[in-house]
Design a binder for these strands. Structure first.
Lengths: 149, 149
DNA sequence: CGCATCTTGTTGCATATACAACTTCCTTGC
DNA sequence: GCAAGGAAGTTGTATATGCAACAAGATGCG
């Protein structure tokens, strides 16, 4: 059935998931990025540092898969972080395959971000409720299972 | 207690809300934007069209407040949309206060987006569960109540 | 009335993100 | 071994977003 502008606007207002999730992202990422700002890093960057801390040497494509980000995005984010000296990106001598890993400076920044992260995480957890991470994980599992369909 | 890099990385992996919400946003907004692409608009733009459909003439600052977006972001988004001819932005003759409203073309685009929006909304709702909008609304209410603190 | 202040909108600068197109390397199949 | 196809990264282009700094009104108080 054809829907007119007013109906769609009301339906979106009532329950658009995209709108709600976008707003949630703005409100929460602002808090994390604000807390991390004195350290000169952002939450997506911290996420990459943590992935490398856990995974050791990782290829860009593997990071992209792990974080559910496009390869092109990872490519640029790694460039910036390499510029900061937090990671090292090595091209295999043969030429093609690459691998990224934490530098000492990167591990230090990561460790130094602990307080800011803890503070923010606790504040947000307090607001959203202690079950929110599990709820989010359930949603993410569903989305991953569904793939790009 | 001082946390080292490994501990922080593990803690983030276990439950970082910022990371989870960022990923949720990427996965869901990709779906909406993909569905809307043939119409030449994005979800944030559709959100603004819907806000104007419901609210009539609105000042940029009021839109920013309603969508929980920075004034600077709204300023640029409105420019782009005005360029598309979907909205009209009038400066009060006296000079300062502005107001935006839908054009006929904007209302048409909004109405035309109904099918794509419905399809995507239903698909995502199926994945996240029918209670997900209410859960998100609860979280957003908490975050709004807390303000920028 | 006039100045100090608050409100609003814009612009500079930077990040994150995506899709598309391109390059390059690697893998298979013949 | 070589050519065709797939995988991996980069780069072009565009949007969304935020903070800071600035510009321009609008307001209120003395």
């Amino acid at each position: 059935m054809q829907q007119d502008a007013e109906e769609l606007a009301q339906a979106m207002r009532q329950g658009c998931l995209g709108v709600r999730i976008g707003r949630l992202h703005r409100l929460v990422s602002r808090r994390f990025d604000l807390a991390l700002r004195p350290l000169g890093l952002t939450l997506p960057q911290l996420e990459i540092l943590a992935a490398l801390q856990i995974g050791g040497r990782l290829k860009p494509g593997a990071i992209a898969d792990a974080l559910a980000v496009e390869r092109s995005t990872i490519s640029r984010n790694l460039s910036r972080m390499e510029g900061q000296g937090w990671i090292r990106v090595e091209s295999a001598p043969s030429g093609y395959s690459k691998a990224a890993e934490l530098t000492d400076a990167g591990a230090e920044v990561l460790a130094g971000a602990g307080d800011a992260w803890n503070r923010t995480q606790e504040a947000v957890l307090e607001l959203l409720g202690s079950d929110s991470p599990a709820v989010l994980d359930g949603w993410l599992a569903q989305l991953s299972k569904a793939g790009d369909g």
